[in-house]
Amino acid sequence: MITILGKTIINFIKNISGVIKLLVDILYWLIIGPFKGKAAQRQGIFNQMIFTGLRSMPIVFFVTIFTGVVLAMQSAYQLQKMGAVLYVASLVAVSLCRELGPVLTALVVAGRVGSAFAAELGTMKVSEQIEALETMAINPVRFLAVPRFIALFFMLPCLTILGNLSGMVGGYLVGVYSLNINPDLYIQTTFKYLEIKDIYTGITKSFVFAVIIALIGCFEGLNTKGGAEGVGRATTRSVVISFILIILADCIITSIFYFSKL
């Protein structure tokens, strides 16, 4: 019992130090690499941007638009009792931009992109492709992890903005066509209570989430052991760990903003 507990703790510490080491490595190649003439390949970054950003747009769009619809109906149900149905608009906008937009987008992207990172790098690891890169004196972190990191770091905030907007469209549909609020009034109320800080706190979160998803996906992939089963395990782990860390990070960041009155 104690040995199992001890092993779990040792593994946990090993994993944490591994993730931190990967982050340091990525930052090294990102910041110092270009001065040594070893910048990440631009082609690789663009390919990853297309995969992580462009191809994630449909799923982010659908998830957030329906969330906007549900959010509007749910809040209308409660606000009707107080005769404040009009405020559905601002409630949807603020809760999407501050909270639901960034978190839902991150969760969707962790499921779609983080798992793909882990599966792709994991397959490369078990089929000796990573070792081949090392033997060719090509650093796998620079060649594989850095482009994915950069791509996700810039694309997740963009996806979050898309998510915020489509969520608001969902709310608008409910507000205008079901609650019969005047369209102009709905849009006016949306932006009346939506402050710029609501948007940038959400975007700040999405940068942190991007780091989490890219790091965990790449870490699990690059540390895959043991054939097809290992790849499956790495993929599952990457999704589970990213989900937990995203929610945990969200909790921490929200409380920082909350207590510092931002």
Partner: peptide
């Protein structure tokens, strides 16, 4: 890496990048 640039390796399962 400097030493590695002077040798090549053929892997058992080729290890080409897919």
């Amino acid at each position: 890496d400097e030493v590695r640039k002077t040798f090549g390796m053929l892997f058992q399962y080729s290890a080409l990048l897919d």
